[in-house]
Design a protein around this nucleic acid. Structure first.
Length: 774
DNA sequence: ACCGTGCCTATTTTT
DNA sequence: TAGGCACGGT
């Protein structure tokens, strides 16, 4: 049972074995912190702590899922299922649904995403007749967001002359009014935004001592991952919940704090020791991920920061090759170089596409990379950016579904009341909005009572409105008996959404139809799984919540073999053998927006630290001489971060003394040209790192570091694995089981499986991620 | 009320 | 460069 303890080094074992009390684990990059968290939870359970009494907060839902799976392997699936594990937002959304009535919210409240919030704010600014160039909705949104994250409610705002003055000084004296209106409108719509999920949790715990007690008693052991990225609101929640038992374990790395821009407070981790009695501090300093060269280069960067906790990350790994630095003429060339280099390295070292990542500072940089990869037929996957659920056609379908659950949802209603066009124009909507504000009701309620209010809306339009309402109602009735998939399918057809796209006929329209179909498939998959889980109910509500809080990282579209493209922020917590950090230029990285203060610049530096430490084997830094920005070719200068790394860790592909100015070779026709030109590297001072081909042994080691899922035979999405009755399989959620029978064929192939813990279930093979065991 | 054209602005990062 | 939005014509 406790054999897993042997898999830990001494530093890792210590925090695992301390059962009670407050502790902080400062975990350097790649030092195995997830392992510590996982085993700590397993250990607690082995010492008799009930899974129901453990709360574990992670940064992404994906991290939570993976940890749960690993824990399930140790303690068994049925036990692991009872753990509360997830992001702050998802855990407390769940809690708020239980307690919603206390705060005056319906338990089926909507969660507004950033887009919904911004649209609403935009509408409010317009309604108030304010100048949209002064009151920029994005700015207003982030201002309101930061108030909420600091627990400054509307009331608190108006009691604080300093804040009001500050806003007045920045020429926005009416910001408070916008804030108030925004909050009112959200409440009226039965909606919470992302920040509300934390703010309202605080309110709940503060205002209702019996609720606080209930959850304090429930969550006797609390673990928080990525503690350096918690904001004030999250900090207070953790503090309140852990106050009674003080069994709290936080894990983090101040050197990897990269979310100050959205309110994360690095002091939460720096001051943790003052917040609790007898805090034990542990340090994980051995890096298992990266080569010595990378670890040391990263150390040399982070040393430039002043605010940090003392810690020395070291590794016993081999030296590894130096970090390659290359300059290209334009961003197009940069893309071609990276694609070419990936192609070569993949051959030379016999790696998979999935072993490569391209990291950038801003999403806009992905385009040049995509173009180049596509030309070379290298499969890739972009994470982040416009996520699937934010696409217009998807949000349209989801908006109808949201209305089914919560017809007061104003943003959803405004989105689809006239899409597809049904003759309800802006004038009508304006009148309804004014009436809704006047009567302090939702627009939906106004429409329901049209006959009782005189709104100068003509007969024809009234009929159209009634038809719309009746359609939504028919979906609601359906929702009482049918499952989410059936409803979603009906919505797509009956609202005319699909028809609208079909008749447009353009390639974009077709792509949109395919996206909607993908969404429907996803819902069907979701329903299949939910139906078999006894503890989950109202699946449409559940689905919408999942969607609202899903990130791009969460929906892994199978682990098919693709190069990963993402921002550095998204890459936190991940690792790849080969990492390309592109756009290493002043004003881009560090960003022009983040160079005015020391702390901003330090955050950029930590971001670079995070980027570099994602690499296991080899890292590449590229920059250009000019790059397309805002549609114009703009001159660029190499990033100061390149200079900050000691030369002995770098391998310049261009004359080093000259690296700022002239290209060594004309890269215009790279790809056609003799690539030996690129091989030449200037011998630089210091010990030349062995730049060798990895031995088979080393490759094996590399592979061992990869998540266990990659080499296995688990099926990726869409690919139906070959199964026969009698096969032993494993399911991510349900654990081990035996195939009883197979039915259907092709895409509809299903298997009846007897799971050890969950009983007999029928799964659609196309979606069920099954792993063959025998 | 709808649709098309042309203009303007955006690029920092995300739950 | 591209997508979103406003305005004007029908």
């Amino acid at each position: 049972m406790e054999s897993y303890l042997a898999e830990l080094n001494d530093a890792q074992r210590a925090p695992v074995l301390q059962k009670d009390g407050a502790m902080i684990v400062i975990a350097g990059a790649g030092s195995g912190k997830t392992r510590v968290l996982t085993y700590r939870i397993a250990y607690l359970m082995s010492k008799g702590v009930d899974a129901f009494n453990i709360l574990s907060l992670t940064f992404t839902n994906k991290a939570a899922r993976e940890m749960k799976t690993r824990i399930a392997k140790i303690v068994g699936n049925s036990e692991a299922k009872n753990l509360w594990m997830g992001t702050f937002h998802s855990i407390f959304a769940k809690m708020l649904r239980f307690e919603a009535d206390k705060l005056g919210y319906p338990s089926n409240f909507t969660i507004y995403d950033t887009q919904d919030s911004q649209r609403l704010i935009s509408a409010i600014i317009k309604e108030m007749g304010l100048d949209k160039d002064v009151y920029k909705y994005k700015q207003v949104y982030s201002r309101i967001s930061s108030y909420k994250n600091s627990l400054i409610t509307v009331k608190a705002y108006f009691q604080n002359p300093e804040l009001m003055e500050a806003d007045a000084m920045s020429k926005k004296p009416r910001l408070g009014e916008i804030y108030r209106e925004y909050v009112d409108r959200c409440f009226k719509a039965g909606a919470m935004d992302f920040d509300d999920l934390l703010l309202k949790t605080n309110e709940l715990l503060n205002r209702f001592p019996e609720v606080l007690q209930k959850y304090q008693n429930r969550f006797r052991y609390i673990l928080v991952d990525e503690y350096q990225d918690t904001n004030h609101s999250q900090y207070l929640i953790v503090k309140a919940l852990s106050d009674k038992f003080q069994n709290i374990c936080v894990v983090g790395d101040d050197a990897q704090s990269i979310y100050a821009f959205r309110g994360a407070n690095i002091n939460n981790i720096l001051n943790f020791q003052k917040d609790y009695d007898n805090v034990q501090m542990y340090r994980l300093e051995q890096n298992y991920r990266s080569s010595k060269n990378i670890v040391e280069a990263a150390n040399s960067i982070i040393e430039k920061n002043k605010t940090r906790l003392e810690k020395v990350v070291w590794t016993a790994n081999e030296n590894g090759p130096r970090i390659v630095v290359n300059r290209l003429l334009t961003d197009g060339e940069e893309g071609r170089f990276v694609a070419g280099s990936i192609f070569e390295n993949r051959m030379e070292h016999q790696m998979k596409n999935g072993d490569f990542a391209i990291l950038y500072r801003t999403n806009a940089q992905s385009r040049a990379m995509e173009d180049a990869l596509r030309k070379k037929d290298i499969p890739y996957r972009i994470y982040g950016g416009l996520s699937f659920y934010q696409r217009k056609e998807i949000k349209d379908v989801l908006s109808y579904l949201r209305l089914v659950i919560n017809p007061k949802d104003e943003e959803a209603l405004k989105r689809v009341i006239n899409y597809p066009a049904r003759g309800i124009g802006q004038t009508t909507i304006d009148r309804l909005t004014i009436a809704a504000n006047h009567y302090k009701r939702s627009i939906y309620e106004i429409i329901e009572n049209l006959d009782r209010i005189d709104l100068k809306i003509n007969r024809g339009t009234k009929t159209k409105l009634e038809n719309f309402i009746n359609m939504v109602k028919s979906f609601q009735i359906m929702n009482e008996t049918a499952d989410a998939f059936t409803i979603a399918e009906t919505v797509a057809k009956k609202t005319g959404l699909l028809q609208e796209l079909k008749k447009d006929g353009t390639p974009e329209g077709i792509a949109k139809i395919e996206n909607i179909e993908e969404l429907l498939n996803g819902i069907r998959d979701f329903v299949e799984e939910q139906k078999e889980l006894a503890d989950v109910t109202g699946s449409l509500t559940e689905f919408l919540e999942d969607v609202a809080l899903a990130t791009d990282m969460d929906k892994d579209s199978g682990d098919d073999d693709r190069v990963a493209l993402m921002t550095i922020h998204l890459a936190k917590g991940l690792e790849f053998p080969f990492v390309y950090i592109v756009g290493m230029e002043e004003d881009l990285f560090p960003s022009a927006m983040s160079m005015s203060t020391r702390s901003e610049l330090e955050e950029e530096r930590r971001l670079f630290y995070v980027a570099l430490t994602r690499a296991e084997k080899k890292a590449f830094l590229t920059y250009t001489q000019s790059r397309y920005r805002w549609g114009k070719l703009v001159d660029a200068e190499p990033s100061r971060f390149i200079e900050e790394i000691d030369d002995k860790y770098l391998d310049f592909m261009i004359p080093q003394d000259d690296y700022k100015y002239k290209p060594l070779i004309d890269t215009d026709i790279f790809g056609e040209v003799d690539k030996s030109k690129f091989r030449q590297t200037k011998p630089s001072s210091g010990t030349p790192p062995p730049s060798h081909k990895p031995t088979e042994e080393q490759l094996q080691k590399l592979r061992k570091l990869r998540p266990a899922t990659s080499p296995g035979n688990s099926a990726s999405a869409g690919e139906v694995i070959k199964l026969m009755a009698g096969d032993e399989v494993e399911h991510m959620r349900f654990g081990k089981g035996k195939v009883l029978s197979i039915e259907g064929a092709g895409q509809d192939k299903k298997a009846e499986i007897d799971f050890e813990t969950g009983g007999i279930k029928k799964l659609l093979l196309k979606f069920a991620k099954l792993k063959l065991l025998n």
